[in-house]
Simulated scan of single mutants.
Amino acid sequence: MLIPHLRIVLVDTSHPGNIGAAARAMKNMGVTELVLVTPQQFPHPEADARASGADDVLAAARVVATLDAALADCVLAIATTARTRHLSAPVLEPRAVAEHAVATLAEGPVALVFGRERTGLTNAEIDRCNLLAHIPTNPGYSSLNLAAAVQVMCYEARLAWRAQQADAAAGGSARAEPLATAEELEALYAHYASALIRIGFLDPDKPRHLMRRLRCLYHRAALQRNEVALLRGILSAVEERKQPGSKCGPRPPRRGDGNS
């Protein structure tokens, strides 16, 4: 039984054998969608050899130039990390992450994002994700092979998927409103930055951590599409009131406001 819409994203993988081994780990657990962001060597015979029967996963893999391209249509993106990050998204262990990911699959694609073998994901790449997944390895020897990390996450996803299927068969309910995609959230954050600069709240030369804090806030909120539209409508109204000649103060009370 395959897990639909669950996407494994490998960023800047240096060793082609790791790509093949990750594909094998995916297929073991019924995950077939693989996206590679700027792999250093792919296609490659060693990737094919290490796939060991998962050649179809490799053949269907998409290669893209940016992480944004890999995540554009995703409603949830989860970054895997070996360490916690300052001002990052919420950090969960694999089982909790998998349960959340699988519960969201009905809304659209969900991505599990894995970084470079030596250095992992950058802070900017982490910022593109809603959650962080941390595998609690032995502190005395925490290094985990890329394919092994993919195996752990896909295994937990399979357990969660089986539990969800059983719940659905028993009459479980679906989410009422669709979640916003990564592309829609990035547009919201760009709109926020533009509006905050316009009203003088954000100094583009000294942004500090303002936009990262906003990202964390909304990642925790799991925004729906209609909520993103609402927020962008508010931002547009704020921008309009800051146009030359517009009145930026509060509107005068009107009859019926309860201020008489």
Rank of each mutant, 00 (worst) to 15 (best):
A166H: 02
L185E: 11
G171S: 14
G172C: 07
Q164E: 15
A166C: 01
Q164A: 09
P178W: 12
H191V: 04
L159T: 06
Y189C: 05
I197A: 10
A193D: 07
R198W: 05
R162H: 11
G172M: 03
Q164L: 14
L188M: 13
A180M: 08
I197P: 09
R162C: 09
F201C: 06
Y189Q: 00
L159Q: 13
A180S: 15
G171W: 00
Q164Y: 00
F201V: 11
P204W: 08
G171V: 04
A168G: 04
P178D: 11
E186T: 07
A163C: 07
S173P: 09
E177M: 07
A176F: 03
D167N: 15
E183M: 02
A193W: 03
Q165I: 00
F201P: 09
G200H: 12
A193N: 08
P178V: 01
A170I: 00
I197F: 05
A169G: 15
S173L: 08
L196P: 10
E183R: 12
Q165D: 07
A166V: 09
I199W: 01
A180R: 14
R162L: 14
A182T: 10
G171M: 06
L202S: 07
Y189K: 09
Y189E: 07
A182N: 12
L185F: 06
R198T: 12
D205E: 11
G200E: 14
G172W: 00
A160S: 03
R175F: 08
H191W: 06
Q165T: 03
D205F: 00
R175W: 12
A174I: 13
D167C: 13
A190L: 04
W161H: 05
A195W: 05
A160R: 02
A187E: 15
Q165C: 08
A190Q: 13
A190P: 02
E183G: 07
A190T: 13
L196R: 03
I199F: 04
Q164D: 11
A169Y: 00
A180P: 08
L185T: 10
G171A: 14
W161G: 05
A169Q: 12
S173Y: 04
Q164C: 09
E184Y: 05
G172V: 00
W161C: 05
E183A: 15
T181L: 12
A163L: 05
A174F: 07
A176P: 12
A187F: 05
Y192I: 05
